[in-house]
Structures are given as C-alpha cells and as structure tokens.
Design a protein around this nucleic acid. Sequence first.
DNA 1: ACTTATACGTATGGTGTCGTACAGACAGAT
DNA 2: ATCTGTCTGTACGACACCATACGTATAAGT
Lengths: 240, 240
Amino acid sequence: MPMKRVKPPANKLLKLLSLHEQQQVIENSEIVDLAFGDILCEDNQNPRHVYFPMTGLISLVIRIDEEAPLELAMIGWEGMLGATGLLGISEAPKRAVVAVTGTAVRMTVKDFEELARNGTQLQTIAKRYLFVLMRQLERTAGCTHYHEVNGRLARWLLMAHDRSTGNGFYLTQQFLAKILGVQRSAISIAASALQQRKLINYSRGDITILDRKGLESAACSCYDAIKKDQHSFTYLAGVH
Amino acid sequence: MPMKRVKPPANKLLKLLSLHEQQQVIENSEIVDLAFGDILCEDNQNPRHVYFPMTGLISLVIRIDEEAPLELAMIGWEGMLGATGLLGISEAPKRAVVAVTGTAVRMTVKDFEELARNGTQLQTIAKRYLFVLMRQLERTAGCTHYHEVNGRLARWLLMAHDRSTGNGFYLTQQFLAKILGVQRSAISIAASALQQRKLINYSRGDITILDRKGLESAACSCYDAIKKDQHSFTYLAGVH
DNA sequence: ACTTATACGTATGGTGTCGTACAGACAGAT
DNA sequence: ATCTGTCTGTACGACACCATACGTATAAGT
C-alpha cells in the first residue's frame, strides 16, 4: 500500500532564510522544469545558473575513461547545485544530470554571487551545504567500494524517495545500473529480490515504494549516515 | 638507478602568498613533525590546528562500518589540511592520518580563521585548494570503483613520490592494503609485478622508486587527471 | 494487426578480489 | 646465536560481479 506523503512545495535551504532574503531570492530567480536526462552543468565548463530543487532529483556524476558516469552525490529539495561557486572558481566540479523530473528555483551564477556575498544568510547556508555535500561525496565513495549492489540499490531508492513527491518515479534498470556503476543484470537481480520481498513494485521503469521500513532495513548503513549528517549540519545548526 | 630529486623546503600554497602574508603566517605558526600513523584530526571532532605540509604525506580516510579506513585523498606539500574551516563548520570532515613521516607548518584554527579572513590571499588560496581537494575526492571515488589494484597501486606510489623528498619511503604491504581497501595478498601480487618490471624496489616496507616513467605508464589515468587538476586550479590561476 | 523499440528476466563462462591460511625471510632483541 | 615479531610470497576455494547474449513481454507507431 503506497503511503500518503505530503511535502512543502519549496526548497529547504531557501526556507531557512529570513523573509527579507527569501524575497530577494524570489525577485532574482525563476521557476524551471527539470526534465529527466537534462545536463544542468558539464564538467570543467562554466555553469550559467545555480539550482535550488523543489521536486525532482539531480545527480552529480564523474566520468572516468570510457566507463559509465558514476554517481557521487544526489541533490534534491534539501540542497542546491552550484555551491562551489563560493570557492571563487567558476568551473563546475562535476557533471550534474537530472535523475528524476521535477522543478527548481533557478538563479544566474552572477546573481547568486551577489546575493550570497559576505555576511548574508544565503552565504552561510550555502557554505554549510557545501560541507554536507563533501561529506556525501566521501560517504558515497566508501559505500561504492565496500557495499554490495543490493544494499546500495535500496539506499539509492530511499534517498530518491526522500527527495521526491509521491511514491513513484521513472527509473529504468539501465539507468540505475549506470549511476551505480554496475551491470544492468545485477540491478535486475537486486530489484527482483526487493520486489519479491514486497518492498518495491516496478514495471518498465515505473518504480513504487511499498514498504519504507523494510527498504531501510535492506539498505546499507550509508542511508542513515548521510541522512543524519545532512540533518545535523544543515538544519539543526540555525542560521545566525 | 634512483634519480636525484631536489625540492624547495616549503609548502606550495604558502609560497603563493605575498611576502607580507607569508610573514604573518610564519609569525603565527610553528614547525612540527608528522610521524607515521599520527592522527591529526578525527572525524566529527573539532581539530585544533591546520597543517601545511612541507614534507611527508597526510591521508584523508573514511571509516565505514568495521571496514578498514579507505583513503579518499592525499595531502602533501602542494596542499593543506583544514581548509574546510572556511565553510564555517568547526568539525573535521574526515579522519586525517600521517601516511609518510615529514614536517609541516602548523597553525591554530583560530589563527587560521583570522589570517584567512575576507580579502586575504590566504583565503583565496585555501578556497581554491578546497575546490581541488573536492575534485581529488571525486576522482579517487571513481578510481577506487573502476580501476584495478595494479593501476591504483602505481598511482598511489607516484602521488606519494611527488609529495615526498627523496625516492624512498616506509610503507608496508599491510598499510597499502588498508588505505587502498584491498587484501594484503592483492598488494603483494601487484607490488611483485611492479618490482619484476624494475619499476620499484622494496624490502620489508622500504620502497624505492626506480623508474618513474615506467611507473606512470603502469598507473591508471587518474594520476594524470589529478595532477593536471591541481596544477591548473592551484598554480596557474594566480592569486589576485 | 503488424512492426519496431524498449524494458526486463535469465543464463553462462570468465575474472578480480576476498578470506584465510601457512611457510619462508629478514631484522632486532636477549 | 637463538628467539621473536614483522614483512612477504603463495596457494586455494568462495563469491560478487562482469561481459555478453538471447528470449520474452509490454508499449508505441504505422
């Protein structure tokens, strides 16, 4: 039975701002659609915009040699894309691709730099999120090496679920295989196991989460670790 | 035949500073020894100092579950430990451990924050290095997943060589196995292959690089990628 | 209704590494 | 000189995943 999930229609980072700064952001940004497969910025190129997703999911991936792009972090409504701009380097650190269709608040890099100048809450929050993102990168690196496909798949689905509205999204096995850096057949086996345990349901790319608790017990420890991290550094800390 | 290698006795980042700021750093810091195995900061704890290595090597490692600590990045005389302090978060992102004995310029976190305030060259350089470090984390993540032990070992030795004085260092197979996240027996096989090809020489932990060119051709593509990265973002960019 | 493309299940041999174990080699201590 | 601890080479079964292939089921287009 799919559970009913209601989420506020906004970006968590932006909600931490004062009303004044929120207003400034709204005046200097626009709402855009994120469509599955869109490449929002390319490795080593200068991105034009920063994004604050409201729904949907952005994957940061690295491409090595001729291998499939491996996912290193995911960004949803709890974060932002482009925080590295704070480091005074215009280039993007990695390719960012839309993994789940949604919507985002978008701002030009120039406007972001202006609004996130020294002393603003936006800068404080973006810096803190950059730290959280680094930790997600690190954890994902360890997870990819040490943990097996089954646990990694369950973790990915949970993290995607946390960052999306509703219970379902469109994700083919081929797509999951690429970002997890494994063969599609490995995903097929792992996904079948999850479906047999009635934790998920899927058909031709339409995935539905049936049992979150069960899925959490099937996921590797990295799910809890990353979640706890993001919570403690981003939200508990307060802005001032 | 070991080649003769001469290196300036200082830290590359600090050498980019103006003489005025260099002087400030010197007045507020001390020279300390880095001894093999020292833990310079611990995950989730507040570090007391930042380090600018002159010789020797610092490893950033992540510990997951009960697995051996996996290396995610290495820091030598081209970088610094503690740049994340710029993000306004006092906690260390990861454990940092000394992999190769050496010396470093050390400064308290408090002094660093004062000297790296807005508008200083030190802040500019530390921010830029933080970006470089992120990219090293990402590349290492992909490398660990996609590349095999042979190439990864060669890359590690090269990177360590670049960051150390002389041609040799003390590194047991057990140590290499842990930071590369593989079995010691896998290191034994890979190292024997390198030795048979006359690229390195080693005995009971004493490793000597015999043929850098050959070792570079044995290493995976990540060696060039990381080196190029660090060069273009840290040094070519200029400070102002 | 037919074709075509996509998504998925499954099978099989191959490979890299694991996990473990054991024995030889060397260095330092007594 | 002997002992002891550490470092290293090697072996072998187990396993996760690779690489590839093929058949089938569903969806979409004509």
